[in-house]
Amino acid sequence: MSSFLEFEKPIAEIEGKIHELRHLSDDNSVNILDEVSKLQSRVDRMLKQTYAKLDPWQKAQVARHSLRPHFKHYVSKLIDDFTPLSGDRHYGEDKAIIGGLGRFHGNSVMVLGHEKGADTEDRLTHNFGMPHPEGYRKAIRLFRLAEQFSIPVITLIDTSGAHPGIEAEERGQAEAIARSIETCLDLKVPIVSLVIGEGGSGGAIAIAVANSILMMEHSIYSVISPEGCASILWRSAEYAKDAAISLRLTAQDLIKMGLIDKIVSEPIGGAHRNPDKAVDDAGHFLFEALKSLQGQNGDQLRTNRREKFIAMGQIGLS
């Protein structure tokens, strides 16, 4: 593990020691192996303890971890014959939202979601997962295409928010998001959404108005970033931790408020420590969620989705 978060320091130190021990001695003497395995079980224990009680600000950092599995990881592992479709047919192709056709457990699906990118170059290509209006207009096009061919939709949510920029505003960022929400609400095929990392504000909900909404255990979903909230209400981004706590942006709080349906447990130490397992587990619950919607016809799916959202907001937290 090359990239540690601030609160993982004690764990990082021990892992460093393990690394040293392994390199210091060429001979695999029993003593050293014994020491390594002791340290390793200590690391596992600490990871389990630490990750069982992450505070909301720590969760935000885990949700944004650069090694966390992103959209492309999920698709390559879960979707067969993935066939990306490009462009909004109005202005351009926005790689901050990727989408396309494919097969999931043998059945046809439309999959789309935010992609943040894996390394510097990739992040630039995908604009750090921050879509322009074209991204949302492409999403709308794919939603309608799915409906036209009676194909269920899976959306994967991972964005700090829609891109704040001059061109994005000029080309109607707000209108594009509003129409995307409107389209999600109107669709007569099943929609299942999974927040895989960061569910950042309007840029996230634009493609997350679903029949079934899932969140990864350490993902976040919020009306505003903790930093943004802190700089407005506390007048300084330094209070991001306080804002994260006040915003109740964790999956555990959202399920209590009835805003999401299911939390997908992550491997010990977070999805970034075992991306393949995290993605497999997510795949299992996505499949279950789609299966549970099978009995409903198009009108029921549409009506139930609308009623689900209208009913939200009646349950507070204690």
């Binding site: 609400l185 805003l259 959202f309 939200m312």
Partner: peptide, 16 residues
Amino acid sequence: MQEGALSLMQMARTTV
């Protein structure tokens, strides 16, 4: 902001 994700959901509710 003070209503967190609940206020975010108003985007969908008002659209309905």
